[in-house]
Amino acid sequence: MGKYIVGITGASGSIYGIRLIEELLRSSNEVHVIVTDSGKKVMEYETEYDMDGVLRKIEEHKDRIKIHNIDNLFAATASGSFKTDGMIIMPCSMSTLGEIANGVSKNLLGRSADVCLKERRKLIVVPRETPFGTIHLRNMLSLSEAGAVILPAMPGFYHKPQSLNDAIDFVVGKVLDALDIENNLFKKWGHDEY
């Protein structure tokens, strides 16, 4: 169906990115994944997965996923001629957010985000930090003004989550909604259930 880039950085909450990858693949999309070195460390610390474990978890979809080396600036995602339906950085550290907001492309993740902005493709940034400092807020404003969607990892509670997975799915569902991808990860407000 679609072609998406998913970035995972060293911010807390790599499980969000893992769940997003699963849902994008489940919806028959092609997914290109870029994980920072810190993102790999945090993933191993916070979850039961390393990147090999993530790949085993999604084994049935391996023909539609490509893991890119963070330092490979010759990867397809670094070029505007590589057409995608959008990029999601989930979770996004304040360091990565600051680099992108200021046009710094030190690695493939930053370059791919820069390509999305310059080509006017959807870029969704999911910051995972609290509280936000003034510099963080300025950088988010700069990205928003450049066309990015700032979608903080803030689970809602009107759907009455029963588990941590429900709270995670709420945020992933909000990202999918922003991409116009149908999903049932949480009950939408205004439905008869409320």
Rank of each mutant, 00 (worst) to 15 (best):
F157L: 10
Q162Y: 05
K187T: 12
E119V: 01
H136V: 10
R56E: 15
S95I: 14
A146E: 07
I5N: 04
E22Y: 13
K83R: 10
S144W: 10
G10N: 04
V126K: 01
G10W: 11
L24C: 01
V172Y: 11
T47Q: 04
L20Y: 04
S95W: 09
S144A: 15
L97W: 14
I18D: 01
I181T: 06
H68G: 05
F170D: 04
I124D: 00
A76Y: 08
R111E: 08
G98S: 15
A178S: 15
T96W: 10
F74C: 01
R19K: 15
S27W: 03
M51Q: 07
N183C: 11
L25A: 00
E22M: 12
V33E: 02
S38M: 14
G147I: 05
E193W: 15
T130L: 13
A113L: 08
N107H: 13
G156H: 11
I15Y: 09
I89D: 02
D63N: 12
G7R: 06
F170C: 02
L123P: 00
A153L: 13
L117K: 00
S28K: 11
E30H: 08
L164H: 04
N139D: 12
L176C: 04
L117A: 03
S93T: 15
L123D: 01
S105E: 06
K160V: 09
Y45C: 08
R120P: 00
I21A: 07
L73M: 15
L151N: 01
S144C: 09
I21S: 05
P131V: 14
S38L: 15
N183F: 12
G156Y: 12
G133C: 06
E119A: 09
V175C: 10
P152N: 04
E30Y: 12
E119I: 01
L25D: 01
L97A: 11
H136K: 05
S95V: 14
R121Q: 09
V31S: 00
L108I: 05
D50Y: 10
E30F: 11
A78R: 03
V6K: 04
D37P: 00
M94D: 00
I88K: 02
V54T: 07
V31M: 05
L25Y: 04
F132N: 01
L179T: 01
L73T: 08
G173Y: 13
K174T: 07
S144G: 08
Y16H: 11
T36V: 10
E60P: 00
D166G: 07
R120Y: 09
S81C: 09
D166T: 07
G39S: 06
E129C: 11
I70W: 06
N183Q: 13
I89R: 03
S38G: 13
E30T: 08
I58H: 06
T9W: 14
L20T: 02
L137D: 02
R19G: 00
E182H: 12
